[in-house]
Design a protein around this nucleic acid. Structure first.
Lengths: 107, 107
DNA sequence: GATACCAATATCCTAAAGGATACCAAACGG
DNA sequence: CCGTTTGGTATCCTTTAGGATATTGGTATC
C-alpha cells in the first residue's frame, strides 16, 4: 500500500464517521432507539433535517439499516452487523482523545 | 467512563486529526520535509494560508514542533514523539477505510 | 543594487456543514 | 372528528472550512 493510498483510505474513514453527528447517532441507535423521533430525542439538539441527512448517509454506507413496517406503520433504524467492524477504530479514537485531554492540560 | 464522555473524547480526536489536510501534513513532515516550502510542495495543492493555519493547530496540539534557527535563518517543523501515539488510531482508520471501499463496491 | 527565495500574513471569496423554522400526509388515540 | 404523533421535506440562514491572490519583511544570490 502506498502512502497515497493510505491517505485516501484515511480520508474515506473520516468521511464516513466524521462530522458532528454520525457517531452520536450510531450510539443512540445502538443503545435501543430505533424510531426516528426516539433517535432525535436521544441525540440532544439535533434537528430533523440534519438527522434525516445523516441517517441517509449512514444507510448508504451500510452502517444503518432502515426498515418500513406496515400495520402498524413504522419505520425502524438498526445498526448493521457491519457496524461492529468500526469498534476498533472507535475504541482507539476514544482512548487517544482521553489521553490527549490530559496531555494538553499539562504545562 | 460514561458514553457522553466517550463521545466527547471521540470528538476531540476528530477535531485534532480531522479535516482535509492535517494527516497529509503530518505525513509530509514525517517523511523528511521540515521546511515550510518543502511541506507545501509535498502536500499537493495546499495554499500557504491553509498550511500556516494547520501547522499552528498541530503545534498547539503538540504534534508538531516549530523551531527557529538564526544564522542561517531557518524555520523547521518536526513531528513530536507524541505523534507516535497517534499511530494505532491512524492504522485502524486506514484498515477500516480500505475494507470499507471493498464493502461498498460489493453488490 | 536588482532579483529571487523564504515564512508567512492580509483580504477577499466560495463551498460545505450545520441550524431554525415551517410545513406535510398518514396514522393514531381519545 | 379533533388533536397529536410520526417520519420526514422545503426554505432559508449562519457558521466554518477551505481556496485565490497579493503583499510583506527579511535574507541570500547574482
Amino acid at each position: 500500500m502506498t502512502e497515497e493510498q493510505a491517505m485516501k483510505y484515511l480520508q474515506d474513514t473520516l468521511f464516513v464517521v466524521g462530522g458532528k453527528w454520525k457517531l452520536p447517532i450510531l450510539r443512540a441507535i445502538h443503545s435501543g432507539n430505533y424510531r426516528f423521533r426516539d433517535i432525535q430525542r436521544s441525540v440532544p439538539l439535533i434537528t430533523t433535517r440534519v438527522l434525516s441527512k445523516e441517517l441517509k448517509h449512514l444507510e448508504e454506507n451500510k452502517l444503518v439499516i432502515r426498515t418500513v413496517y406496515h400495520s402498524p406503520l413504522a419505520v425502524e433504524y438498526k445498526v448493521s452487523d457491519y457496524t461492529l467492524s468500526l469498534l476498533p477504530v472507535i475504541k482507539e479514537m476514544i482512548l487517544w482523545g482521553k489521553n490527549h485531554r490530559e496531555k494538553i492540560r499539562e504545562k
